[in-house]
C-alpha cells in the first residue's frame, strides 16, 4: 500500500479568511516538504475557481482541492483543520456553498498508481466514524492518528 499520510502534512488551527487563503496556507505543507512544484498552489487556486471541490459529507463539510499531475513531485494527502469554517463552492452544484471545516488537499502524480490512495480517501469521506474522528480531533497528533487509521 502506497503511503499517503505523512506527519508533516497534518495541520490544525488554520485561520483562513477565504477559500483561496485556506488553499494557500495548507498548500505550503506540500511545498515546503517538497511534494509539489512551486506552480502547484497557484494551479490549485485557479482550478478551484473553475471546478470547485467542496463536499457536504455525513456530518461535516470539507473541501478536497487538487490540480493536474504536472504540478506534483510526490503523492500525498494533507489533512488540515480550519479554526473556523470557510466557504467553498460545492463540487457538483455550481452556486451551492458549503462551509468547509477541513481540507483534504491531494497531490497525485499518477491516478492509476495511486488509485489505492484515492479510494482510501473516498472511503474515509463516506465513513461516518472516520469523519467523526476527524471532527473530534483537536491536536495535530490526534488528526494524524485518525488519518493513519482511516486513510494510511
Amino acid at each position: 500500500m502506497e503511503q499517503a499520510i505523512y506527519r508533516e502534512l497534518i495541520m490544525t488551527g488554520v485561520d483562513a479568511k477565504d477559500s483561496e487563503d485556506a488553499i494557500r496556507q495548507v498548500g505550503q505543507l506540500f511545498l515546503k516538504n517538497g511534494f509539489v512544484k512551486d506552480t502547484y498552489i497557484d494551479a490549485v487556486v485557479a482550478r478551484e475557481k473553475v471546478f470547485a471541490t467542496g463536499l457536504e459529507l455525513n456530518g461535516i463539510s470539507i473541501a478536497m482541492p487538487h490540480t493536474d499531475i504536472i504540478h506534483v513531485n510526490k503523492p500525498g494527502v494533507t489533512v488540515a483543520k480550519l479554526s473556523h469554517p470557510v466557504e467553498f463552492e460545492h463540487m457538483g452544484e455550481p452556486g451551492r456553498k458549503v462551509q468547509a471545516e477541513m481540507l483534504f488537499m491531494m497531490a497525485i502524480t499518477n491516478p492509476e498508481d495511486q488509485i489505492g490512495t484515492i479510494m482510501r480517501v473516498l472511503g474515509a469521506f463516506q465513513n461516518k466514524d472516520a469523519m467523526e474522528a476527524f471532527k473530534k480531533a483537536e491536536t495535530e497528533d490526534e488528526i494524524y492518528a485518525a488519518a493513519m487509521q482511516y486513510i494510511g
Binding site: 478536497m64 490540480t67 493536474d68 463540487m91 488509485i115 479510494m119
Partner: peptide, 15 residues
C-alpha cells in the same frame, strides 16, 4: 467526468 479528469473521476470510476 471531473474537473481535472484525474482524482474524482478515478474515485467514482472504480465504484
Amino acid at each position: 467526468v471531473c474537473g481535472s479528469g484525474v482524482v474524482t473521476s478515478s474515485m467514482i470510476a472504480l465504484k
